[in-house]
Design a protein around this nucleic acid. Structure first.
Lengths: 342, 342
DNA sequence: TATAGTTTGTAGAACGTTATACAAAAACAA
DNA sequence: TTGTTTTTGTATAACGTTCTACAAACTATA
């Protein structure tokens, strides 16, 4: 009954406004050489017919006005703040962001980025990609690219936006030392493929630097969790039950920090008296307030806005790379604050 | 230095394999009329040159092999389970899922869906859309569509996949009554635009049904929270501090339920002794175990897989609508379990 | 009034596919 | 052999845009 209506194309508009197809296209892209009278006539027709440009067709020639966003972990509560920033930064630019989920493996990530390039997207923002630098560089040569949360300070094929992860780790360690911790351990995460560009690796490096003064082999002071929560939990339990269990724990993310809370409670260890805990990302601001988790605040929103702006300017033609680095800030709460009178 | 390499097209392949463009296209779509010898020759060339079809170009004629996913709330921890299911269900189909974020307002959602249609996507899966039924129906006539978590049992323009939300609410209320609660309140959420298709509304309806026997006006028994966490928190506090505060709370989602935990702890109310709490979605399985939140389990994974399959079959040509409804299951934990010996 | 701009509009090739219509070759039947 | 099918491969018109070249109509200048 309701016959699939024929799409309104640039041609339909041209006929309706009684001008050439080329004219309509010009109006659309507001390029040089259209009289006021014509512009109005054409715009009226577009309005009337409800014309919307067909981006697949556009893609064949020029832009698709689409930005590809690469994300790996839908569950990480830190990431939405980044996306909020990206959306904000893209608002009003006419570019439509679309998100692809890489599921944390290199082949899937590669396939996804290829898919985006095949769909002729105009720019890419990757959040914490798993891909090695050379691969990203290769892609970046095909399409304007901006990377969030992956350190490539010397790269010139693409832009990066980061918080200073080394600094964050150093600040955390210093704080734990000030609180009287002697046996500080970092709860990190095993990387599928290690590389200094990785945010976690950077935090490890900062941790090692800051621990330089302590008499402990760094390798012993870093424990690597896993990607799935269950195995990480076992690991945490083991760590907390060891005879020489740590009295200070620096967690690579708030997510694992909450797991520590759970495990500690079940084992009967007090936080911060028995173990002081510092997390990372300052998520869970509302939801887990009673835990009072100390954490490094690094508003993802900032990253997102900056990335969007960089990408837009690159699409506009900029070709020298820019690398933005923001500084995280330690928010001290109950989980690491011991009364100074011991 | 590294000149942007020219893209390998179907034409390049044709030349390399020394056949016609049409032939390559046929191989690509494995359509009728290709000899074994030719198929091999062409595939070898494609392999050698690393050919990848250009979907923007494809879109101009036929399919783009892209599925649009509509999501509204990146922060809801329940949704990733749905997406896992969708990804799984789409795996190996050759369709690439891409996610758009609607940000919970109707105009943005409409714009987003239009953007997807303009990009010539082959199918749409919308998760808990804000759009009214007629609008969805309109879109569904342009492109195969499947809706998750929105009840439209009589619709025939698109498919739906849901858990039975009324049932879940009824089960929750019955359980609370069995646990001796007399003053049961539902903590719901204000809807931007109400409609029975909405999941939350359905839960309210189920709640009212089950409360039928109790001597309280339903309108008093349902409290509506807000979209932002902060205002909802204030509301919860007020509710818990009222002289006739509830002794049983049915929360529309685990997210608000955790807020209740926080507020109760700060006010000094015990769960479940003072208030029994039942949540919805059974998220936070790992992370909040110590809270022991009773909740309605409704694995999103199932929804996702089913939706993907329905969509694929619709793309294949099915035209009669299908409406799948699964049953949620109450998982009883400490937050609502009172020892029976009073 | 010529001549040289400048402004306004149009034709039409191109982008990388798909798919229809058809020609050529091979296989079969009489 | 001759005709009839069937198989295999090709030429080419779309699809909806963009954009370069160019023609036509004005304006300004000499």
């Amino acid at each position: 009954m309701t016959g699939r209506a024929k799409r309104v194309t640039i041609r339909t508009v041209a006929e309706d406004a009684d001008v050439s197809v080329a004219a309509v296209s010009k109006v659309l892209r507001n390029s040089y050489g259209v009289s006021e009278r014509m512009r109005e006539k054409v715009q009226a027709s577009m309005q009337k017919l409800g014309y919307r440009p067909h981006s697949a067709a556009r893609g064949l020639r020029g832009k698709t006005f689409t930005i590809g966003l690469l994300q790996n972990d839908l569950r990480n509560p830190y990431l939405p703040t980044i996306f909020d920033g990206i959306f904000k930064g893209l608002e009003g630019s006419g570019f439509q962001p679309l998100l692809g989920v890489g599921q944390s493996t290199e082949p899937l990530e590669t396939a996804l980025i290829n898919a985006m390039i095949d769909r002729q997207m105009d720019g890419l923002i990757m959040v914490a990609p798993r891909l090695p630098g050379e691969k990203i560089e290769q892609f970046a040569r095909e399409v304007p690219t901006c990377i969030i949360a992956h350190h490539h300070p010397d790269e010139d094929a693409f832009d990066t936006v980061n918080f200073d992860d080394k600094l964050g780790a150093r600040v955390a360690v210093r704080h734990l030392i000030e609180q009287g911790c002697h046996n500080i351990v970092m709860l990190s995460q095993a990387l599928p493929e290690p590389g200094v560009s990785n945010v976690i690796q950077q935090r490890e490096l900062g941790f090692i630097e800051a621990m330089g003064g302590l008499n402990k082999r760094p390798s012993d002071a870093i424990v690597h969790g896993f990607f799935d929560a269950a195995s990480t939990e076992t690991l945490i339990r083991e760590l907390l039950l060891k005879p020489d269990r740590p009295d200070g724990l620096f967690c690579w993310s708030d997510m694992v920090a909450t797991q520590v809370f759970v495990a500690a409670a079940e084992i009967g260890l007090r936080i911060p008296e028995d173990i002081a805990v510092v997390g990372y990302d300052n998520t869970y601001d509302d939801q887990l307030r009673p835990f009072g988790l100390s954490s490094l605040n690094q508003p993802g929103y900032k990253l997102g806005v900056a990335a969007a702006q960089l990408l837009l300017s690159r699409i506009e033609g900029r070709s020298e790379a820019e690398h933005k680095v923001f500084s995280p800030e330690l928010i001290v709460r109950g989980s690491s604050l011991r009364s100074d009178d011991t």
